[in-house]
Design a protein around this nucleic acid. Structure first.
Lengths: 147, 147
DNA sequence: CAATATCAATTGATTAGTCAAGCTAGAAGA
DNA sequence: TCTTCTAGCTTGACTAATCAATTGATATTG
């Protein structure tokens, strides 16, 4: 029954790895009272602020509904402010979020980096990045096969 | 503010890709009335059945709580049967699940494979698989950095 | 034999997300 | 000006997961 292709093995590997490292990252970020998803969203806001919810949703590849709920939580925690600007809501970070990010960002970057630095040299990392970039870019313009 | 390392770029790429391809896979599997997570679980059961919930949880890297809820759904849909064996519950597939898997498995495998076959040659796929395997295996024995 | 320890599975509260239907406010047409 | 359209956001119902506390069933100990 198991006639796996190389591609399907890569796929599973990627899924298991991201799943696992995501959990570890959640664990790590507990010291800053953040989850990986929240950190990701706050980072994107900090880079592109001020921006609308639609724009943000696209950056983190989440639906409008998903970003709406996430922002409600972040707003309740006092990390962001939204103000109705015209018919759009513009998002920006609070001082609290800025100061937490300042601490958390370098540490989280180092944490992410350590997954690769520990086992791959620079050349191998460049190769991995190049290959994954090609795969990712391709997937973005991929169509669903016909039924 | 953006002094990203190569590792952190790889990390983000992996997260975005798996996130996206997972959604596409969900979309694809709708024709079989399955989600990616359900397909994954059913596949593992089909390979290792009969097995306990703990064992299954480990195979798909989910907590006991997570697998418990997932199995309730799969049981309600008539895909699996659980029977209390001693103090453990043993899981096995129903005929319905077997026949659906028989159809869905080759198609899902082809679908996964196409993410890579379309843009990477055999050698590149082998390289990608090797690198990711090293990264994944390393992450499994990784410890959380001290506070 | 009754009390307790142990291990598997379930469950309540929460985060995170999807889809699709419903609001809401400003823009445009009659 | 008043209705209609539309873009952006929210929300209800659901899948999927986590953690931590609880339940259930057997095994062990006093």
């Amino acid at each position: 029954m198991r006639n796996n292709t190389l591609g399907s093995l890569i796929w599973l590997r990627l899924m298991r790895f991201t799943n696992q490292s995501n959990q570890m990252s959640n664990d790590f970020l507990k010291r800053f009272d953040l989850t990986t998803a929240q950190f990701d969203v706050l980072m994107q806001i900090s880079i592109y602020q001020p921006l609308t919810q639609m724009e943000l949703a696209e950056k983190v590849t989440v639906t409008q509904g998903g970003i709406s709920r996430m922002l409600v939580r972040l707003e309740n925690e006092g990390y962001i402010v939204r103000k109705q600007d015209w018919k759009t809501k513009t998002i920006s970070l609070t001082a609290k979020a800025v100061s937490i990010l300042e601490q958390a960002m370098p540490e989280q970057l180092a944490f992410q980096t350590s997954f690769f630095d520990d086992v791959l040299n620079e050349e191998e990392q460049t190769t991995l990045y190049t290959l994954m970039t090609r795969v990712h870019k391709h997937s973005q313009k991929k169509e669903l096969p016909p039924e």
